[in-house]
Design a protein around this nucleic acid. Structure first.
Length: 489
RNA sequence: GCCGCUAUCGUCUAACGGUUAGGACAUCGGAUUUUCAAUCCGGCAAUCGGGGUUCGAUUCCCCGUAGCGGUACCA
């Protein structure tokens, strides 16, 4: 019998869901699901200062919107229960005391200031002078109610070794490891105590997390050893880097998952981009042939193998993300696209006028067809549709590329003439024939000695109020004869 | 400073120790075209440096360099 794979994603509820967190969650989810295992969500809220109200619900909402749902974890929208660390404080306290009894940890009564004074020489690993306090003295101080922390008692001259599933064998000299705090003075555990206790108690078989945790592994080795727990499989993945250098951070551009959604990125596209950052599928490739890059979450889960993860840190390339999003938009059916755009507008569109128009537009589909294949993110769309709903001020014709070579009186004459042509069109614009429409504009251009393209541009500017627009003929059909004539006059 | 990780086009990446080092994004050129796009075709572009091991290193080992991470009673 093989044991079930159990992985976990263990974020902190700080109110900010970094795109790198999404990637960590994705890999861990895929590792569990690809092996018919169990995916656990655990909330590590052991820092009271950083806790943000409501962020647990928010966290759950975000990952599930990507299709990353968990098998075990906080109860949704209610009391969160045992998968939230702040609910488990007695357990950690007991566990820390157990380590003290076993000689793997000790009480330390130093204040923060005193510790900092002792840490002046950073070359030497920190060892508290209270490391070897007699048990009588400890009892005495505890009875007096002195503030304390419990620290890990790092042994001397030991080599601590881990076999990382991704990075291979890594060793540390125990003499370089600080006597880290395990239980804080406020009774909360530190990350180190929390993860080790919980990963064991929750039966986690495979730990996946960011490489920023690699340096804490030797401490965890000691903790697992102290408790007598077996060390689980562990893999540390490289962090996503910013094109400007260093970790991807808010200061250098957007990195918030919810903000990407707000900007009109699709969950599938974001996921697809993120999954390929540091991973590539082990599939057959033919020389010179285009590689497959579009994968759904389901396909990813099936293909995912830790062996195919990259060891080096990828740089977050927004251009490629944009491309992925465009691909997903273009590959989506129109009905689905309309639905997605409506949902997005409802949630995120800040412009009340446009939001109202879009949500109440029964012919939204026809308009979206015109822009669907020319945008990369949903937030570009309202700007492209605006002219359908209100008359946009016509720019100075002589500043429009192409039209600047004509006299403005001539342009005026030409457009007036076009108005007459248009008035002969069928009242029902759906009966208009594009070839005739093109021919009419061309012959008018000939009459005024204009380039064909310039005449189209002239009409475009009057109808759409801009030199850039969706296809003109279809746009005019949607606006209808009366409205088109009104705009031209 | 100390500890640790990493190193293929600008970026994401592929390549049983033997390939003209492949693909994608970006970029540049062309086709298409009523604008902007989209699409199609083509071009430019990489194995960090130095030593080994080997008949042969992008690939294995060592050193250097660079980048990144950690060095909290934050995670």
């Amino acid at each position: 019998m093989t044991t079930t794979v159990r992985t976990r994603f263990a974020p902190s509820p700080t109110g900010f869901f970094h795109i790198g967190n999404l990637r960590t969650a994705l890999y861990s989810y895929a590792l569990a699901k690809g092996n018919k295992g169990v995916f656990v969500l655990r909330v590590e809220d052991t820092d009271k200062k950083r806790y943000v109200e409501g962020s647990i619900d928010n966290l759950i909402q975000i990952i599930t919107s990507f299709g990353i749902d968990y098998d075990e974890g906080p109860i949704k929208g209610g009391k969160y229960g045992p998968y939230v660390q702040s609910e488990r404080l007695e357990i950690y306290k007991k566990k820390a005391e157990e380590l003290v009894e076993k000689g793997y940890a000790y009480y330390c009564f130093l204040t923060l200031d005193e510790v900092n004074e002792l840490k002046v020489d950073k070359k030497i690993a920190f060892r508290s002078p209270h490391r070897n306090l007699s048990s009588d003295e400890v009892k005495d101080r505890l009875n007096k109610g002195e503030k304390y922390v419990i620290r890990l008692k790092v042994p001397s001259n030991r080599t601590l070794t881990v076999f990382d599933e991704l990075l291979g064998k890594i060793e540390w000299d125990s003499n370089t490891i600080d006597d880290t705090v395990l239980l804080k003075a406020d009774g909360f555990p530190t990350y180190h105590l929390g993860v080790v206790v919980d990963d064991y108690m929750m039966g986690i078989t495979h730990i996946t997390r960011g490489i920023e945790w690699l340096p804490s592994v030797p401490k965890h080795i000691l903790l697992f050893e102290g408790f007598g727990y077996p060390f689980p499989k562990v893999a540390h993945m490289p962090v996503i880097l910013d094109p400007a250098g260093g970790k991807l951070s808010k200061r250098k551009g957007n990195v918030s998952t919810s903000q990407f959604l707000e900007e009109g990125y699709l969950e599938e596209a974001l996921l697809n981009f993120i999954m390929l950052l540091g991973w590539s599928p082990n599939i057959e490739r033919k020389y010179g042939e285009r590689e497959r890059e579009i994968f759904s979450l389901k396909e990813f889960v099936e293909l995912f193998d830790m062996k195919d993860l990259n060891k080096s840190s990828p740089v977050f390339d927004r251009e490629k993300l944009l491309w992925f999003n465009g691909q997903y938009i273009r590959n989506m059916g129109v009905d689905k696209f309309v639905e997605r755009f409506r949902d997005w507008s409802k949630k995120y569109l800040k412009d009340d006028f446009m939001q109202n128009k879009i949500l109440n537009d029964k012919e939204l589909g026809a308009k979206l067809v015109l822009v669907k294949d020319r945008v990369h993110v949903l937030s570009e769309i309202p700007g492209l549709l605006r002219f359908f709903y209100e008359v946009i001020k016509i720019p100075n014709l002589l500043e429009v590329k192409g039209l600047d070579s004509y006299k403005s009186e001539d342009l005026k004459k030409a457009i007036d003439d076009y108005s007459k042509v248009l008035s002969s069109y069928d009242e029902d614009s759906s009966k208009w024939i594009q070839d005739n429409w093109v021919a009419d504009i061309r012959s008018l251009a000939d009459k005024y000695a204009m380039k064909h393209a310039d005449m189209f541009m002239l009409v475009r500017v009057y109808i759409c109020g801009s030199a850039f627009s969706p296809p003109l003929f279809e746009a005019m059909q949607i606006l209808g004869k009366e409205e088109c004539i009104r705009r031209i006059n």
